[in-house]
Design a protein around this nucleic acid. Sequence first.
DNA 1: GCAAGATGTATGATATATCATAGAAATTGC
DNA 2: GCAATTTCTATGATATATCATACATCTTGC
Lengths: 144, 144
Amino acid sequence: MLNSILFYSLDKAIRSYRRLAQANIDRAGLDITVDQWLVLQVVLEHDDLTQQEIAERVFKDQASVARMLALLVKRGLLLGIPLPNDGRRTRLRVSEAGHQILDAVQPIILANRAVALAGLAENDLTVLRQLLERIAQNCAPVAN
Amino acid sequence: MLNSILFYSLDKAIRSYRRLAQANIDRAGLDITVDQWLVLQVVLEHDDLTQQEIAERVFKDQASVARMLALLVKRGLLLGIPLPNDGRRTRLRVSEAGHQILDAVQPIILANRAVALAGLAENDLTVLRQLLERIAQNCAPVAN
DNA sequence: GCAAGATGTATGATATATCATAGAAATTGC
DNA sequence: GCAATTTCTATGATATATCATACATCTTGC
């Protein structure tokens, strides 16, 4: 039975949450995806990362990040300024429009989390996080 | 910090597992994706479901399932036989090639699960599943 | 300095995710 | 029995996921 498979529950939980999050962002009239929001947030916090570094932080791959960044720049949420010391890269900066959308999304994300985690105690979350981290570690390819 | 966000851990765990699973399937020389495998497995168990019903079982949407079924038929893993009592539908059946690939993938999936869940006690899994189900339920849209 | 290797980015190909909608076929209400 | 509604499937548009690879640029070794 599918229901007895742990990964089914995992998949279901994350997909449910993502749908909820996206629905609430859409409902607020904000034109951004959850994934774009995440990348934008990472750039806000660190504007000197390579695509690969961003990819590791958001757990996507470099190709996905490259396309998302191009889209965010195209939409005017990010600015790409050529880096003088490395001709391959551009320094990314969140634009004014980007800041506005991040500010608008922030409370929605917090509300979503509250809804998603309703009824879970602080201790539950700690246990959950530990188990999930263990699974991720178990699955990680041996680096070397 | 991203690391303190539960959904980050969730996303990371499921993505790690999916990558491991796909890598091992690929390594075995089997030409099927994890998602295709899941759909094929569902059809094997119930050959009279609508796309919508399959979609609910695998927690995808109908459009995704439609495309995956078309691809599975095209690849010869599924057979589509028109249903006499409903001109809109076709009865899906797993082909001989489909059975072969399911049989070949089965042990790999089991091995993957063992690797992913190494070090987790039976009790951990129960707790984990309950918490994940609760989250999914919290996020589910009110049906009516 | 320069050749070899490493790093950073972009993109093609294919698969999946989602919404919206079109079109066909079945069901319902009356 | 037929019109209105519902159900089922397919598909367009756009976004993301992944691998592979092309290409430019940087770094290292010597």
